[in-house]
Design a binder for these strands. Structure first.
Lengths: 152, 152
DNA sequence: TCCATAAAGATGCATTTGCATCTAAATGGG
DNA sequence: CCCATTTAGATGCAAATGCATCTTTATGGA
């Protein structure tokens, strides 16, 4: 009988270790390029993009939270900052007296658009440069598996 | 002639977006499991593992920094905490008057070992469960490309 | 040898994150 | 209808991170 194999296989442990390192490296590059260009941080872009995609209906904070996998209290404060900057508008929800609806403002759309060239170049530098398109597609596929529900 | 294609290909952008999400999801799981078990955070494990691998020679802070891809000031303070907890010993470097040599203590080895079962289970939950060994190996390979020097 | 420059670490201060908890509104039995 | 429970979101306080800068020692010419 086989020895009680340690739960994660060796390739799994390696994948996790490299996920940490690769993410840190890429994130550092992207944040640095944005800052060099005098632009807001990455999280702002991500939030604004989700809100822009959501269209005029907007999103509830808890929906945005799920999209971004952000902690509730962190999202709450991220929205504070975005609203203070005038990039996001908060309105009371019509159907839920506890809640709000977030929409992106014209300025929000503008800044997101203005961030893109720098952000795009940083993505290319941090990721694209190292992989073919096919490899990137494979990587995206495998990473997507990590946060969608397990086959269960 | 082709339109001036935006620098990162669509699969590259997707890969980056998923790298963010997948990492956040996995990291959240791992940190939560460690905390539930009353164990130190992930970064402590990583640092202790590197120091343990380095053996009795130890590591210079800047070497550890490169291994972990940690910012200098963050590493400096991580070491403070590890030293305060008695898990790492700092000694003046013999060859470099500016520097130190870090070694893991007996207690450091013990806590790292004690963290492993919980950490391993969390890795399995966050990563292993979603992928076959072959897929994990492919993922590890692709991620590794992101932080080793580009083909140049 | 001297000096300008670079490298190793540390640190004060501002911002962000994490944690626990709180308020207010919704929901679902009984 | 009432009350216990859940859900949406905010917030005070502690810890960690980011930034700029500082000190000290090494290094490499002229």
């Amino acid at each position: 009988m086989p020895a009680p194999t340690s739960s994660p296989s060796e390739p799994v442990v390696r994948a996790w270790a490299r996920l940490e390192r690769a993410h840190r490296a890429a994130q550092t590059t992207v944040e640095a390029r944005l800052k060099e260009a005098g632009l807001p941080p990455l999280a702002w872009y991500d939030a604004l993009l989700e809100l822009e995609r959501a269209g005029p209906t907007g999103l509830r904070p808890f929906e945005l939270q799920r999209e971004m996998l952000f902690a509730q209290y962190n999202l709450s404060r991220l929205i504070d900052r975005l609203a203070a900057a005038g990039y996001v508008a908060r309105a009371a929800s019509a159907e839920d007296g506890r809640g709000q609806v977030l929409t992106i403002t014209r300025e929000g759309r503008a800044i997101r658009k203005r961030m893109w060239p720098t952000y795009a170049a940083a993505i290319e530098e941090a990721v694209g440069r190292h992989l073919s398109s096919a490899e990137a597609a494979t990587l995206a596929d495998l990473l997507g598996r990590l946060y969608s529900r397990p086959a269960s």
